[in-house]
């Protein structure tokens, strides 16, 4: 009965500046976890440690589906199982939208071009971009690009998806279309860890909300608890600040 993602005593420092102070966290299969907190609190660093885009302390331990996250052979397996969606999309600009989605399944999973294209078109349809499959990322709006990035991550059939402020770089009128796709994913049982400033989304979709500050998880619980009855003063102050906006 172990969780899909297990994090134990996760510590990370830049020189003498400690970004994460020994975080413990377990994320179950199918769970949707939203991470909120002020700028610089370590939210991005935390989720980037899960697929080892950030190296972390030696005595810290992260397991994804039982595989230790550490440099070496196992890391490729972890990354194949964990998709990531970035704030700035990071689509490959020299490839068509469809090629973006096909690349990793072909190179990492060994899918044939035909099979990868079929899966790619299916996923692009799921995020509503199938009409644009032959366009290049630069020809799409921000919202469309982010939906392609979600399809690209899904194409690996990952066990979990990590989102780092997926709507923060978008014009306001495009935020909704990306959140809608993410809501569908959450409803279909995909395990998701979402760093977000969209409190409405967190309240509606999350199974659990984590409030981070100063490199620690200050408070965690179901959305109703965190948003309506926060126990910690720091959580209250943060929510006051963002909700009064």
């Amino acid at each position: 009965m172990s969780a899909l993602i297990e994090i134990a005593n996760l510590r990370k420092a830049y020189g003498s500046f400690t970004v994460l102070h020994g975080i413990d966290l377990a994320i179950e299969e199918g769970e949707v976890v939203c991470i909120i907190g002020p700028s610089g609190s370590g939210k991005s660093t935390l989720i980037r440690c899960i697929n080892h885009l950030e190296p972390f302390d030696r005595d810290s331990r992260i397991l994804v589906d039982g595989i230790p996250v550490a440099p070496g052979r196992g890391l490729a397996a972890v990354r194949a199982e964990v998709g990531m969606v970035f704030q700035s999309f990071n689509l490959f600009p020299h490839m068509s939208v469809l090629r973006n989605v096909m690349l990793a399944p072909m190179r990492v999973r060994g899918l044939s071009a035909d099979a990868a294209a079929r899966r790619g078109l299916e996923l692009l349809a799921r995020v509503g971009i199938d009409e644009q499959a032959d366009k290049y990322p630069g020809q799409l709006s921000g919202g469309q690009q982010q939906r392609v990035a979600i399809a690209r991550a899904l194409a690996m059939e990952p066990k979990a998806l990590l989102f780092d402020e997926p709507t923060s770089a978008l014009d306001p009128e495009m935020v909704g279309e990306v959140l809608d796709v993410m809501k569908q994913l959450a409803a279909s049982g995909v395990t998701m860890v979402v760093v977000t400033h969209e409190m409405g989304f967190a309240r509606q979709v999350a199974d659990r909300v984590l409030f981070m500050d100063g490199g620690r998880i200050v408070e965690a619980g179901p959305p109703a608890q965190i948003f309506d009855a926060p126990r910690e003063e720091r959580t209250r102050a943060f929510l006051r600040a963002v909700l009064n906006h």
């Binding site: 697929n51 885009l53 490729a76 397996a77 990354r79 194949a80 964990v82 998709g83 990531m84 970035f86 700035s88 990071n90 689509l91 490959f92 600009p93 020299h94 690349l103 990793a104 190179r107 990492v108 690209r152 991550a153 690996m156």
Partner: peptide
């Protein structure tokens, strides 16, 4: 090449060789 391109390739699980050949060098 922007750092995000390397990170996206790594996050997808591409090997260093595929990252260079398919993503970084063509750009």
């Amino acid at each position: 090449i922007p750092h995000g391109q390397f990170e996206a390739a790594q996050a997808l699980g591409l090997s260093p060789r595929h990252m260079m050949v398919d993503v970084i060098l063509p750009q």
